[in-house]
Design a protein around this nucleic acid. Structure first.
Lengths: 220, 220
DNA sequence: CACTGTCAGTTTGTATACAATCGAGGCATT
DNA sequence: AATGCCTCGATTGTATACAAACTGACAGTG
């Protein structure tokens, strides 16, 4: 069964397998916003009964990737202009916090990690591989988030980013001078290294804003 | 059936009825942290089958009120010292944002609402009714949050507050001079009225911090 | 022509039956 | 007495059967 290709999934509850599968299909655009998720159709396609499908869909709802309409089933969540603005604003707020905390709590080894991560990001930019670019960029920012040390904030940020993920590729494509991002990261690293948290905050806000503008353009 | 006492619930999906019921039992302490939620027991007690119970429990998990252990079922979520700190810090961050936005976007009528809400809060304090005190305090803060106009941030704040709700009564009990809260609210209103956002932010942080300290003491 | 009511088909909501797994406790072996 | 194994009971995971609700279409009626 195509479903069990990934050995890791073999011992997970089926709801989690369903969740991961559908999540990927949504994030990478196979399932498009607004598309209806019908339980019987999915249960036939994925080869499991309706119960794990239903539970998997509930997990997706929890992540904000699908919306449920009473008696009308589940639909892939779209994102309106307003929602995107709200998400970005929430991200700015929380990410500002993490950068501040990061400046206060950074250790020598974490600082090195940060530089390493940006090096890998630069390599990904060189290669031009979109997935690598997105992944290494995420990794860079995650180090800052981890260093801040607030699990709840991390959880919330992860969720916010996931909801924007579908639009991240578009942003990366749109951007002509992607190497600018590397330099922005460098400036952020520099500010953190000097414990200039006000400057680091300012930089991260600009960094997010530039993404915001590009994604926004794509959406409208 | 005791279950259908509330006419409003009669036409909701059973999972939502289960969700509301269990949510209330958790928030008001009938179900204590760590307690195990067994599907058959609950299905017998609430008079529905296991399916809506399972789905209701998934909704509770989404709210962070229960945690699921694979093959071990659902437990009422407790909160550790660290988690509480993280939640409070997240709250401070987001609520600071909402106060800032509120200062920029406040309208005449909203401003009056705010004063009204604090009047009702003062009355609740007078009455000494704990539930009213908690509710009117929440209402006051919700006006600020609504005025900020960011749905995503609102959603996240609601969730954060829900996770602390169980400890809010304790805080209210602990506090000797509850009327101080009314005066704090007044100061916040004043600062918002004068568009002194930096001062309003400072006040709201102190406001949350004083709660934090009291709750924290209870927990340790 | 518009409006309404009903009927069939489809889809979600609920109940229940069955399978897989985990844990506790007893038993045998050392 | 301690340890490992096995079996049984309890509980969650999964499948499926059945009920209720919504949709759209069509016919009948004003």
């Amino acid at each position: 069964m195509a479903f069990y290709e990934n050995e890791e999934d073999a011992f997970l509850p089926l709801r989690d397998v369903v969740f991961k599968q559908l999540r990927e299909e949504i994030l990478y655009g196979k399932l498009k916003p607004g598309e209806r998720l019908m339980e019987v159709a999915l249960s036939e396609r994925l080869g499991v009964s309706r119960t794990p499908i239903r539970e998997g869909i509930r997990l997706l709802e929890k992540e904000g990737l699908v919306v449920m309409l009473p008696r009308r089933g589940a639909h892939v969540a779209g994102i309106t202009e307003k929602q995107l603005e709200d998400v970005l604003e929430a991200r700015r707020t929380l990410e500002t916090f993490t950068v501040n905390q990061c400046c206060a709590r950074i250790t020598r080894s974490r600082f090195e990690e940060l530089k390493e991560a940006n090096k890998r990001f630069a390599e990904a930019i060189e290669s031009g591989n979109l997935k690598d670019m997105a992944d290494t960029d995420t990794a860079f920012h995650n180090i800052i988030i981890d260093t801040a040390g607030n699990e709840k904030v991390k959880e919330m940020l992860m969720n916010l980013k996931e909801q924007m993920f579908r639009y991240k590729y578009e942003f990366m494509k749109e951007m002509q001078d992607t190497s600018r991002l590397v330099r922005e990261h460098e400036q952020i690293i520099d500010a953190i290294g000097k414990s200039r948290s006000d400057r680091a905050v300012e930089l991260i806000r600009m960094h997010i804003d530039s993404q915001a503008i590009a994604i926004y353009r794509k959406l409208v």
